[in-house]
Amino acid sequence: MRTRPLPSLALLLLCGGCAGWQSALDPQGPSAQALGQLLHGFVLVLAAIWLAVLVVLAVALRRRSRATPQAADRHAGIAVGTACVATVLVITGLTLASYVTTRVISAGAEAPLVVRVRALQWWWEVTYPGEAGPDVVTANEIRIPAGRPVRIELSAADVIHSFWVPNLAGKQDLIPGRDNVLTLTARRPGQYRGQCAEFCGMQHAHMAFMVIAEPPEAFAAWRAAQQADSAAPAGAEEAFGRQVFEQKPCGACHTVRGTEARGTNGPDLTHLASRATLAAGMLPMTRGALAAWIADPQTIKPGNNMPMVPLTPAELQAVSAWLATLR
């Protein structure tokens, strides 16, 4: 028999889905684990049923029945009855398993860390309500202490989005006018990629975020650093950059605490350079990427709500230099 290379290769490709990066098959927290077990349970039960049906079908096709018409009728009745009972049992069992899992993953937690996540086209605003200090507002990056449950309060500003970190929890929609809650725990420190999982417009595919779980001490240090105002400009170029930022339309939409910029329509940039990526996971956080993004955001991410603000080359250099220092 000649093997066909293409379908076999396609099957091999599917195995790539089992890798750990943004995968529900590599659970790193109790919620994701419960869902993973449910998934495996369903696959096992349904695969067993499928095999059983195929075996019965094969036997039925090969065997010629020599029963009388009355006996054949009786046999058919028994077969249909058995199948009905088995179906009801299987569906009831799977429904119960599903229900129990839902109960487990939607149960609250004792003394969780509260994080508010607001989804906008096409980025995530992350707020840590003040615990002995001002609120911390950041974007597209959710730092959490490993091992401690986190209560994520979800809201949406414009259209329906969906919050999904496959390694840590299932999906939860963010719906304008309705507040949803998701509780998740990261068992160990690590970086877990998340992604909007509900089509939300032109740049839905570029609406990623990162959950970074750290040891509790590192998280506390990060939080304290984020509560501080932005650093003062280090040199003349940075000072000019800050001045441009305040005078041009930048400051009308972005907040940089410690400056005149107090806009609330775009992400808070007070500690922009402490984040790993720019524009919801699109670009690495470098001075060059910052300049490219500011120079022409509509070519990098067409349709996003950051306009192309006309700047001279010197202004662009200075603004990106200053932003790159906001650690």
Partner: peptide, 12 residues
């Protein structure tokens, strides 16, 4: 058609 990016001279 969504014109999200007016060319700089046009914007000017």
């Amino acid at each position: 058609d969504r014109e999200t990016r007016p060319d700089p001279p046009v914007a000017q």
